[in-house]
């Protein structure tokens, strides 16, 4: 039991930190521009594909550095020539624009890279077991994923709280008009934040690609979960996003690890149902079976009972 507990925690941590890399960019973008970027996970996918192509010729490490840069530049271009144009038409138009962009990027990826799974492999240097516990290996690459995520979190935290740019960004989150009145170029900051946010998603893609497989559906699988995190954490709250990421990561991992189901719950109350009952499917549900949809349940509940999210202050 202990081994399951430890590994469930580790797995939850890996997933949670990975999700945070996406959620941090998304929530930054949202706080500044009020745009919930539907295409955010698509930039994550682009990161993985660019890194895959680069790794074919120059190896994994080149991909790790350059793929996020390419993604970031693409993101900035999207902001400059797409979003800014749509901005005049209001938030719904922006949301719809990013929705269309997500759709287009998925098709474009299939156009350029084909539809089958890509053989994007982790570097040989990290192909060993970091440690073995109860007969199960924890690969060095997963350790590396944790390290990178934590590194980025610290870096981001440092930039946002200590640097001049970070202070301007923080100010722009809460008082965009005042910042503009002070003479800062807010559109440029927007473009920069969008670029950095998408680049962060790119990094996540680069390091997740080898483990979570690189295929055209990878954005869809992750996309809606990232929204869920940002919303649960509280729109615009970086700390909230961090907590929600870990929460979702651990929740899913523990739900899968558990073996309880509806029946166990009903047993507690001494209720039992015949197996041919009309709602037998409901009584037979197990927690692992529904683990991947738990975040959506949580999302709906949070939005009903606390629309600002866990840490959010701003109501839209």
């Amino acid at each position: 039991m202990l081994d399951v507990l430890i590994f469930a925690t580790l797995n939850g941590l890996v997933t949670g930190l990975l999700l945070f890399m996406l959620a941090s960019g998304l929530t930054l973008i949202f706080s500044m521009m009020g745009v919930l970027n539907f295409a955010h996970a698509s930039f994550y996918m682009l990161g993985a594909y660019f890194a895959y192509s680069l790794s074919l010729y120059f190896g994994f490490w080149t991909g790790l550095i350059f793929a996020p840069l390419i993604v970031g530049v693409l993101g900035a271009l999207v902001e400059r020539y797409g979003l800014r144009r749509v901005h005049q038409a209001g938030h719904v138009a922006e949301l719809v624009f990013t929705f269309g962009l997500a759709f287009l990027i998925e098709e474009a990826v299939q156009f350029f890279w084909g539809r089958d799974t890509k053989s994007y492999q982790s570097p040989d240097v990290l192909n060993f077991a970091l440690f073995t516990l109860f007969g199960q290996e924890f690969s060095a690459y997963r350790g590396f994923m944790i390290a990178i995520s934590v590194g980025i979190f610290i870096g981001l935290y440092y930039v946002l709280t200590r640097s001049r740019v970070g202070i301007i960004i923080q100010a722009a989150i809460t008082h965009p008009n005042t910042v503009a009145n002070l003479g800062h170029n807010v559109p440029l900051i927007f473009m920069g934040v969008f670029g950095v946010g998408t680049a962060l998603a790119g990094v996540a893609g680069v390091i997740a690609g080898p483990v979570l497989t690189t295929f055209p559906g990878m954005a869809t699988v992750l996309g809606s979960i990232v929204f869920v995190i940002v919303v649960i954490g509280g729109l615009g709250s970086l700390a909230g996003a961090f907590i929600a990421s870990l929460l979702i990561g651990l929740l899913q991992s523990f739900a899968i690890a558990s073996d309880v189901g509806m029946e166990d719950l009903l047993d507690l109350f001494g209720i039992s149902f015949p197996y041919d009952h009309a709602l037998a499917d409901l009584w037979g549900l197990t927690l692992p079976q529904v683990a991947p949809i738990l975040p959506f349940l949580l999302l709906v509940l949070v939005l009903i009972f606390r629309p600002t999210g866990l840490m959010g202050k701003r109501e839209e």
């Binding site: 590994f7 890996v14 699988v221």
Partner: peptide, 9 residues
């Protein structure tokens, strides 16, 4: 997203 939790089991 990630099958590792299943593999742990």
């Amino acid at each position: 997203k990630d099958f590792t939790p299943y593999v742990t089991k």
